[in-house]
Simulated scan of single mutants.
Amino acid sequence: MHVLIAGCGWLGQAVAAALLARGDRVTGVRRDPARAAALAPLGVAPLAADLTDPAALERLPGDVDAVVACQSARADGEGPYRDAYVRSNETLLALARRRPLRAFVYTGSTGVFGQRDGEDVDETTPPDPRSPGAEVLVQAERLVLGAAPGVPARLVRLSGLYGPGRAGILERVRGGALALGPGDGAWMNFCHRDDAVAFVLAALDRGRDGGVYHGSDARPARRREVVTWVAAALGIPPARREEAPAGPDRRILSERSRRELGLTLSYPSFAEGVKMLLPR
């Protein structure tokens, strides 16, 4: 296949590497020309384009067989989110309507679920956005899924991503941003980059048109478990805080997605993935 990857950054480059390894052809889109040019040594055909500009449509290759939309926002907030997840997808969907595609995979976020009561959330749970940014994420989902059946759209909601080059969980525990104390029973949900790639490729190859999938590991963990485990692994005492941090508290379930897509995770829990990132 010729696959267009929009937002060919940290995750997109890992998806590209997996596609290239199996013999597919990849065009990678990035806003910044220098970052786009850096894709060429990886074997990816680089394309510098701002997908928020409708004129970018005419610069996208017309012979693509599939699209992976994994662009990210330049900053937090409603405006940057709308650019990255709504306006950019409008351009990509316009491309998808010009020619029959095998698949259009959009990597959304489990951030559409703002529940704060420890609720189990699966692929059938209605979104519950609790911030302007999350509202935009829901709009983007509706935009993409609403393009079916004319566009073979599939949605992969990813949980907190980590992996090589992105070990923020270690720094957050080391710096005390993740701590024990009030609210440490809240659920945390993760997905290692390698497993995120596997979810995206499975949705690309075997997903249902209009399908919604959760790219999340098999064992969500409570904050106290994460803090205690990481602190012990780093050889430091866990930090403590007297105030409960704001944020959601929900357990993201992915069993249905893994079963439908036929996936076995490389890192079923955060501990199995994070230990590979520890200083040696």
Rank of each mutant, 00 (worst) to 15 (best):
A73D: 12
A148R: 12
L178P: 02
M1W: 13
V44D: 08
A75W: 07
Y213V: 13
G183F: 08
G185N: 14
L155I: 03
G175W: 02
D195R: 00
R241Q: 15
G12Q: 11
N89W: 00
D194H: 06
V274K: 00
S269C: 13
L95S: 00
F270I: 04
P248L: 12
S131Y: 12
L161N: 07
R87K: 10
S131L: 12
I252P: 01
V144K: 01
A218H: 03
V212C: 08
P248I: 10
V26G: 04
C8R: 10
V86M: 01
D120I: 07
S254H: 08
P46K: 01
G160H: 07
F104W: 02
L161Q: 07
G12V: 11
L263R: 00
L145M: 11
P132E: 05
D117G: 11
G176A: 01
P132D: 05
R172Q: 13
A21L: 02
G23H: 09
V156K: 00
W187K: 13
R97Q: 03
L19I: 01
G118C: 06
A147S: 13
V64M: 05
D24V: 06
I252T: 13
W10V: 15
Y213H: 10
D194N: 07
A140L: 04
D24F: 07
G168V: 05
G183R: 10
G7D: 04
G165R: 11
G160E: 06
A202Y: 06
A36D: 03
T91W: 02
R258G: 07
D217Y: 12
L178C: 00
L253V: 07
T264S: 14
V274Y: 02
V86P: 03
L143R: 02
R35Q: 14
V68S: 08
L93C: 00
G210P: 09
V15T: 03
A36Y: 07
A198C: 07
A103T: 12
T52D: 06
D195P: 04
L47R: 05
A218M: 08
P245H: 13
V3K: 04
F113M: 09
E78Q: 11
L234E: 04
Q115A: 11
N89K: 04
D195K: 00
T91S: 03
D194T: 08
